[in-house]
Computed example of a mutant assay.
Amino acid sequence: MRRPRPRPSASHLANPRENYSDIAYNAVVCPHGYVYEGRGAHKQTGANGNATLNIRHYAVCAMLGNSGLTTPPDAQLAGLRDAIEWLRSSGDAGREIRGHRDGYPTARPGGPLYAWVKQGAPRPGSSKPEPPRQFEPFPGAAWFKTAPRSPIVTAMGRRLVAEGCSAYAEGPGPQWSDADRASSRKWQRKLGDDPQHCDGWPGPRQWAALKVPNV
């Protein structure tokens, strides 16, 4: 994938009103299909409208306007697909693809690009649809009490962080730890569980609500 670094706009580097410290997007794609690295992978975006969306989602900007070029060319759609696949392979992005308007009151992205997003962001010329999002089946409450070391634990921890329930000093990682249990306890409280039963050991209901992606 072509990822030369562009020069960020001055307002994104020095914007005290919106507290930008770098370009707000993780990646930017031009009409010719070039993918430019913005904040990059494993960096929180500043473009999704509010803190919750910025924690949960990466942000990829398509260089389009509300006049002039408003319909993305196939080359740009291919570049956007490149960016999605890069963030999945290098940034642990999930399967969900959404437009800005799905989580924030805005007209962005415009109609033609949003229609493509709603189709699952297919690569131009491909008839292969985006596979449905799959979630990790609940491994059982007893499994967590064996102090497992598994990618499932990492995937769960990342979802807890995305939900604002982190008790991690670092990580999360594959080894089940007291920090995982403390984060799970925060999730139970967020779901409104009886405080007497918020012991941090995941149950099937809390697991289903967390939507841990397949590893």
Rank of each mutant, 00 (worst) to 15 (best):
A41V: 12
V212G: 01
M1L: 14
A167W: 00
P139V: 03
G203D: 03
R88T: 05
V35D: 01
R39T: 12
R205N: 14
N26I: 02
P195W: 04
R181L: 03
R108V: 03
Q188F: 04
D102H: 12
P73Q: 07
N19V: 10
V153Q: 02
Y114H: 09
C198G: 04
A209Q: 13
F144Q: 02
S9H: 09
S90R: 12
D180P: 08
M63H: 13
G38F: 01
C165I: 00
K43S: 10
P139G: 01
G40P: 11
S67D: 15
W176L: 03
S150I: 03
Q134S: 14
G173W: 02
S11Q: 09
P172W: 05
Q76C: 04
N26R: 04
A209E: 14
I84K: 01
A41E: 14
G99N: 09
L13M: 01
G111E: 13
T71M: 00
H42D: 07
R158H: 10
L160E: 01
A169S: 14
E136Q: 15
W187Y: 08
E170G: 15
T70L: 07
Y114C: 08
H57Y: 12
M1E: 15
W86Y: 10
E85N: 04
L210S: 11
Q119K: 12
A121Q: 04
Y20K: 13
R7I: 15
A75M: 10
G49P: 05
Y20E: 12
W116N: 08
P31E: 02
A209S: 11
N48E: 11
N66M: 15
D193L: 07
Q196P: 08
R205Q: 14
K145Q: 14
R158Y: 08
A169V: 15
A121P: 04
H32W: 00
W143A: 07
D92H: 09
E96N: 05
P16V: 01
G111F: 01
C165Y: 00
K43M: 06
S90I: 09
G171T: 08
G203C: 02
K43T: 11
L191T: 03
L113A: 10
S166I: 01
A141K: 12
G94N: 06
A78M: 07
P139C: 06
N15M: 07
Q196F: 08
L13S: 03
R5A: 06
V28S: 03
A75Y: 08
D22G: 10
D193F: 02
Q196Y: 11
C61P: 09
A51S: 12
G200S: 00
N214G: 12
C198H: 00
R17G: 11
N19Q: 14
R95E: 15
P131I: 07
R108D: 05
